[in-house]
Amino acid sequence: MSGVSNGAADHARELGDRLKSAFRMHPAGVALITAAAATGPVGLTASSVSSVAAEPAALSFSVTRATGTAGALLAAPSFAVHFLGEQHADLARVFAHSGAPRFTPEQGFVRLPTGEPFLPDSPAVLRARALHLIPVGSSTLVVAEVLDVHLGDEAPPLLYRDRKFLRLDPETEL
């Protein structure tokens, strides 16, 4: 029997590795999700933000674990999902790693009247609150109600593919 379960575990591990490889090659938009937590401002970089519905306005994203920064963010009453432009690549790197300096004066954050850290030069910021937290393995899928949308200046989007931040060539159309 142990050979069967080891085979299943090996298959699951290989499938997971292949899934990660497939998604590494699939480009995704980059977002910064921020909140005013009980311990102060928190934020993380995400490439899993998706639209769920327009009516009611809803979005989704996933976090790797619901502890630390992600746990504090999910415990906040609301959060701000910033769609990042290519000018935000350095900021995305900072918020993608633990321990890097966040919410410094140079980064340009202000506060929304509701308390969330807000990056005014983002092309779009969606203020939302979690509706459903769905555990999936070691990750948590968040389905959130969009409460407000702040549209900023248009900017070329920041993309993420194969562990690198990329920009679109605005001159190239297919």
Rank of each mutant, 00 (worst) to 15 (best):
G3C: 09
V4A: 14
A9E: 13
L15I: 11
K20F: 10
A22N: 10
H26V: 11
A28Q: 04
V30K: 02
L32M: 04
L32T: 13
L32I: 13
A35I: 00
A36F: 12
S47R: 05
V49L: 00
S50C: 15
A53G: 09
A54G: 13
E55K: 14
A57M: 03
A57G: 04
S60F: 05
F61G: 03
T64M: 01
R65H: 12
T67G: 00
T67A: 00
G68N: 13
G68Y: 11
A72I: 02
L74M: 02
S78V: 03
S78G: 11
A80R: 05
F83T: 08
G85I: 05
G85P: 00
G85D: 01
A89K: 15
D90L: 08
R93I: 07
A96S: 14
A100K: 15
F103W: 06
T104Y: 04
P105S: 03
E106V: 02
Q107K: 02
Q107Y: 03
Q107M: 04
F109A: 00
F109M: 03
V110C: 04
V110N: 07
P113G: 12
T114A: 02
E116P: 07
F118I: 04
F118H: 01
P123T: 01
I134G: 07
V146S: 11
L147H: 05
D148K: 15
D148Y: 08
V149P: 07
H150W: 05
L151I: 05
L151R: 11
L151Y: 04
L166F: 11
L166N: 06
P170E: 05
E171C: 09
E173I: 03
L174H: 11
